[in-house]
């Protein structure tokens, strides 16, 4: 069966994402180098021994990108989980309880949306302090509103359907309806949003890392790698372009997967 899930571009997206995930799970499989301690001359151009060249203190950039995947992907995963868990809970509560609870929750969502995402995550970061996990939580807070809105509208559309009324008619409880009907029906759009927010979290985390609020050096993180390269712009293009290309590829892949989930409907 030929669907959007098996198109060549989709397969490429899976491949890119799977590679990045493998990098973060088992970086030692892809490189023998050390991500923290350099063992060669500084600022070597890409070659057979150093695929991405070396950085300003002679560390292999390819190794640092691979080890950086762990911080970047884990951060994005935590960010999405924060948004998914809190946002979905708020959405379900708003959609099922209705009334005052719904009004209050949806106004909170409006407020969260009214602060530009970077400023909101910076405000949370000031509160929590800098660092990988804190940056991830700060980015996650910015996605709560999106999840809450989506899940609430899903709950409302499912709850008003005839089969839910029938389910209540044969004695289902509210919880049973949530688990049997609302949850399965909301899965597809929520999954699409998860993929979309994963991509957006990667970008936002790279930005926070670039500004110096994320993972502290010398631990590699994708945004930080590019920030470190700024002093060598005139001479060493590989320091920015190659890690940059990796970020763009992974973000594009996640965005594309979100796009096909939305397009195809059921998973």
């Amino acid at each position: 069966m030929k669907t959007a899930y098996t198109k060549p571009t989709a397969l490429l997206a899976y491949l890119i994402l799977a590679t990045a995930i493998l990098w973060s799970l088992a970086p030692g499989l892809f490189t023998q180098g050390d991500p923290i301690i350099g063992d060669d001359r500084a600022l070597l151009a890409p070659s057979a021994t150093h695929w991405f060249g070396t950085d300003s203190v002679g560390r292999d950039l390819y190794t640092r990108v691979i080890y950086g995947a762990r911080n970047s992907l884990l951060g994005a995963l935590v960010a999405v989980l924060v948004g998914l868990i809190i946002g979905t809970s708020l959405g379900v509560i708003a959609g099922t309880l209705r009334g005052k609870a719904e009004t209050i929750i949806m106004r909170i969502v409006d407020v969260l949306l009214s602060i530009p995402s970077l400023l909101l995550s910076l405000a949370v970061l000031i509160l929590l302090g800098f660092g990988t996990m804190n940056a991830a939580i700060a980015v996650g807070v910015t996605s709560i509103a999106m999840f809450a809105r989506l899940v609430r509208s899903q709950v409302l559309s499912v709850v008003s359907s005839d089969y839910v009324e029938a389910a209540y008619g044969v004695g289902s409880t509210r919880t049973a309806v949530l688990i049997r009907h609302v949850l399965p029906n909301s899965l597809t759009p929520v999954l699409a949003l998860v993929a979309l927010q994963f991509a957006s979290a990667l970008l936002q985390l790279a930005t926070l890392g670039f500004l110096g609020y994320g993972t502290p050096p010398p631990t590699p993180e994708w945004g930080l790698l590019i920030a470190d390269s700024r002093a060598y712009l005139a001479t060493s293009w590989w320091l920015t372009l190659l890690p940059g290309a990796v970020i763009v590829a992974v973000v594009l892949a996640a965005n594309h997967i979100s796009h096909i989930i939305n397009q195809e409907g059921q998973v």
Partner: peptide, 18 residues
């Protein structure tokens, strides 16, 4: 458009300078 929204903006700036 999808490609442009997948590039971190600091990267765009740095590549432009370069």
């Amino acid at each position: 458009p999808a490609f442009m929204s997948s590039i971190p903006s600091f990267l765009i700036g740095i590549v432009l300078i370069q």
